[in-house]
C-alpha cells in the first residue's frame, strides 16, 4: 500500500513536469544558441502582475519587439492574489539561473526588488526597469512611459478644462507605496500651484484601494459621500479609474462629477461610450512593452550604453534618453471620438 502510494506521487510529480518540458522546448531553444558564436539573446519582460489588460498590452508590444529583433522573449510575473513582491524577487532569481541576457521589470517595490536585481547584475544579466523604477543601483536604465511632468500636466489640464480653474478634486491611487503614482501626484501638485493656484486637492493623502477594482468602486462611492461638494476625481491607476467609473455609473453622478485619470482604452470603452467618463489619459502600453524589450536587448548586445542621449527603437523610432531614463513620449488623451482607434 505504501509503496503504491509513493509510486502514485512520483508519477504525479513527473506528470506535473510534463507540460513544463513541452513549453521549455517551444519557448526556449536557447540551449543550442548559447554555445554557438551567434548567440540568440533571451530577454524576459516581467509586469507588476499578470492578467490585467494594461500589462497584457505591454506583453503584446514586448512580443512584437522580440520578433522584430529575432530574440527569445519570455513574459511572466506574479499572478494576481499572490504576494507580488516576493514572487518578483524569486522570478528574477530563476531568470538569472536560466541565464537570461536581459530582464525588463516593472517592480512592485523599488527597494525590495533591489537585492535580487543586484545579484542578477553581478552575474552579468542586464536590467531595465520600466513602468515603475527600481533603486538606481539595481538597474541599468529606467524606461519611463512619459516624464512625470508631462503626465501631471495632461491630467491637470484635462481636469481644469472640465471643472474650471477653481474647482476642487480628490485623488484615488493604487497602493500608497507605488513609486510612480507618488511621483505623479507630487508633480500634479507642483503644476497645480504654478498654473491653477485656486484649484483645491481635498485629499492630501490619496484614497488607496490597492490594485483592486471592486475596492476602488467601493472607496470611490464612499468618497462621493465624504466629499459631497467635490467637482472632480482623479483615478491614477489602470485599475482605479474603471473602478471609480463603475461607482459613478451606479450612483448616476457621472454628469455632476468629472472623473479622469489613467487607464487602458479597453477598460474604459464602455464608460466613455455611456458618457460616465469624458476624457482620460494614457501612454500606449503596447509601445511601452516594445520599448522596454528593445532597450533591454540593445543593452545586452552592447548597443545601448550609459551616456547615450537617444535610442533607436525599431518601429517607434528614436526616443530621448535623459541621464539613465529612456522616455517613450507624451501621453495621449482619449475621448469618445478617438477611443475606437486603440485596441489595447
Amino acid at each position: 500500500m505504501r509503496r503504491w502510494g509513493m509510486a502514485a506521487l512520483a508519477v504525479l510529480l513527473m506528470a506535473g513536469c510534463g507540460p513544463a518540458e513541452k513549453k521549455d522546448d517551444g519557448a526556449k531553444p536557447v540551449d543550442t544558441g548559447s554555445a554557438a558564436t551567434g548567440k540568440k539573446l533571451t530577454v524576459g519582460l516581467m509586469p507588476k502582475l499578470t492578467g490585467i489588460s494594461f500589462f497584457n498590452a505591454t506583453d503584446k508590444g514586448g512580443k512584437e519587439a522580440g520578433e522584430a529583433l529575432g530574440i527569445d522573449y519570455v513574459y511572466d510575473g506574479p499572478a494576481a492574489g499572490t504576494d507580488t513582491i516576493e514572487k518578483q524577487s524569486q522570478l528574477v532569481g530563476t531568470w538569472m539561473a536560466r541565464k537570461f541576457d536581459a530582464i525588463a521589470i516593472a517592480p512592485n517595490d523599488p527597494e525590495a526588488i533591489a537585492p535580487a536585481l543586484t545579484k542578477a547584475r553581478s552575474r552579468g544579466v542586464k536590467v531595465v526597469a520600466w513602468d515603475a523604477d527600481a533603486k538606481k543601483e539595481a538597474r541599468d536604465f529606467f524606461v519611463t512611459q512619459c516624464t512625470p511632468e508631462s503626465i501631471a500636466k495632461s491630467l491637470m489640464d484635462v481636469m481644469a478644462e472640465a471643472i474650471g480653474p477653481e474647482g476642487s478634486y480628490i485623488i484615488i491611487t493604487g497602493t500608497l507605496t507605488a513609486s510612480n503614482q507618488n511621483i505623479w501626484m507630487a508633480e500634479m501638485e507642483k503644476y497645480r500651484q504654478a498654473k491653477y493656484p485656486k484649484m483645491k486637492n481635498l485629499s492630501p493623502t490619496p484614497i488607496s484601494p490597492g490594485e483592486d477594482k471592486a475596492k476602488a468602486t467601493q472607496m470611490a462611492a464612499d468618497a462621493l459621500k465624504t466629499y459631497p461638494g467635490v467637482k472632480g476625481i482623479f483615478a491614477i491607476t489602470s485599475v482605479a479609474l474603471p473602478g471609480a467609473a463603475e461607482a459613478l455609473r451606479k450612483s448616476g453622478t457621472g454628469g455632476k462629477v468629472f472623473l479622469t485619470g489613467l487607464a487602458t482604452p479597453s477598460d474604459m470603452r464602455e464608460y466613455v461610450k455611456d458618457g460616465t467618463v469624458k476624457k482620460f489619459v494614457l501612454w500606449s502600453p503596447v509601445d511601452l512593452g516594445y520599448l522596454a524589450v528593445s532597450a533591454a536587448a540593445a543593452l545586452a548586445k552592447g548597443e545601448l550604453k550609459p551616456g547615450a542621449t537617444e535610442f533607436k527603437a525599431g518601429r517607434i523610432g528614436t526616443v530621448k534618453v535623459v541621464g539613465d531614463q529612456i522616455i517613450l513620449g507624451d501621453p495621449l488623451v482619449f475621448d469618445k471620438d478617438n477611443i475606437d482607434k486603440f485596441d489595447f
Binding site: P19, A20, E21, K23, T50, V74, G77, P78, Q90, L91
Partner: peptide, 8 residues
C-alpha cells in the same frame, strides 16, 4: 517548474 518556463 519556474526553471522549466512554466508560467506562474
Amino acid at each position: 517548474l519556474e526553471m522549466a518556463g512554466v508560467s506562474s
